[in-house]
Design a protein around this nucleic acid. Structure first.
Lengths: 248, 248
DNA sequence: TGAAGCTCTTGATGCAGGTCAACGGAAATG
DNA sequence: CATTTCCGTTGACCTGCATCAAGAGCTTCA
């Protein structure tokens, strides 16, 4: 039916030091031999197809995952309403931090496009962390980074206009792509307008309209899901303060 | 002028096992001798007066703090606007998790009323965690709990009505007071309407109005900052779905 | 190739809640 | 004690965005 997932991942034992993301990934800063221990605990990279679930809300938590390529979204089922998108995961980012120390997965995570992820069984990671203080530090740091990110998000959702939210969202993508060494000015939005709206607390129509307006203003160029940032400074200005009502 | 803060904290070396919060605090589940090691690293409880800062945004991070009594708020300075309230801390809760692994404090934390906090110098805590796997687990769990809490908050801020936000906020307080063994149905709101509004992404006038309406509906009773939950089930109903426009 | 879904766009309309304003009461300050 | 400042409430008004609706590509699949 479906084509085999790219022949099957070849290196039976993945080598972190060979990975292009090596410099930005979790094991950043580990000594050479520590890095090798790290290799030992990583499971074969998994291939995911668009729409395929990596974890399901409420399922038992066993592993962290690092995104190698592609992108995913996390959704949390709301009591009454639809699912709410709570996170987008890009290459180099870690899925599952919000489940550490808990029994079950906090939300569902599904691939937005074809993706590869590296699995880190958490019990093994913990054993390794026992003798690698640096790794512990990395883990703490990742979690507190995430805490800060969520708090920025809370600030964004609480009392910012649609324009500011969209502009901040695009800037966030810009920064994350930059940090991973990916093209930051021109990229593909793997998520739908509806996903973006859910994430930003906006109706999908509003997302569409605001993007259209940004385009009119010459700040970005969008064709479907292909997006180009034309004027990053204007975008930053938009993110900080909404255009004054009086265009002066 | 003001009465001395309760003579000065007497026990030169605090004893976790004697603390009333012992059963709910960070060292929960530690063995007896582990608990004693824990005692060793805790600094003398600090007294804070209303409005006094425990940490300032950008200051170097050195310690976690556990709230023993009173309450605090965390605020994050926004580029353009006023400070935004990002957290309220109640007795038994831990301040500073979002700074672990980082150099500096993420937000400012100030006391909302007279408060006592226990200081946990993080470097010592880390040393202790090295030989106490349980403590590590506790720390991870605390951080991921916080991550989940923030995500619930994001969901709340994104696309819930003012009624739902207020109801959820009050329910949250109910649960947190319950969990600490404090009176959950009748309590004192140590934060201003403005703080609540900032936290929930609402104008302070809206907070005032919604509380008044809840009171009319007989769900709560408020007099200034004294609040009583009269009908917890109605409150839960309000938190889930806003009253339908058609009152059937 | 055509039909049936999606996703995205664009327009029209209405309302939840933000903003402005005024006032009463409580708490801080000298 | 008087004064100032802050806090909470309530009313009137207005706007940003959700909602409803319709239609235009794009993709999928028989």
């Amino acid at each position: 039916m479906t084509p085999r997932p790219a022949q099957r991942p070849r290196p039976a034992v993945p080598r972190c030091e060979l990975c292009t993301l090596h410099a930005r990934c979790l094991p950043l800063g580990l000594e050479f031999d520590a890095l090798q221990s790290f290799d030992d605990i990583i499971r074969l990279p998994q291939a995911l197809k668009r729409g395929q679930a990596l974890m399901r809300q409420g399922a038992p938590f066993t592993s962290l995952y690092v995104v190698r390529s592609g992108s995913l979204k996390q959704t949390v089922a709301q009591p009454d309403q639809r699912d709410q998108v709570t996170h987008f995961y890009l290459p180099g980012e870690i899925v599952g931090l919000d489940a550490i120390g808990e029994e079950d997965c906090h939300g569902s995570v599904v691939a937005l496009e074809s993706a590869f992820v590296c699995e880190l069984p958490f019990t093994r990671l913990e054993v390794l962390a026992e003798r690698l203080p640096e790794l512990r530090g990395r883990l703490y740091r990742c979690m507190s980074r995430e805490l800060r990110r969520d708090q920025r998000m809370m600030c964004l959702l609480s009392g910012r206009t649609a324009d500011q939210r969209l502009a901040s969202f695009l800037l966030g993508l810009y920064e994350r792509f930059s940090a991973r060494g990916l093209s930051p000015y021109r990229f593909f939005l793997s998520m739908s307008r509806s996903d973006i709206g859910s994430y930003l607390g906006l109706a999908l129509e509003t997302v569409s309209r605001v993007l259209a307006r940004f385009q009119e203003q010459g700040v970005i160029a969008v064709t479907g899901r292909e997006l180009t940032i034309s004027d990053i400074e204007a975008l930053e200005a938009l993110a900080l303060a909404s255009a004054p009502m009086t265009p002066a």
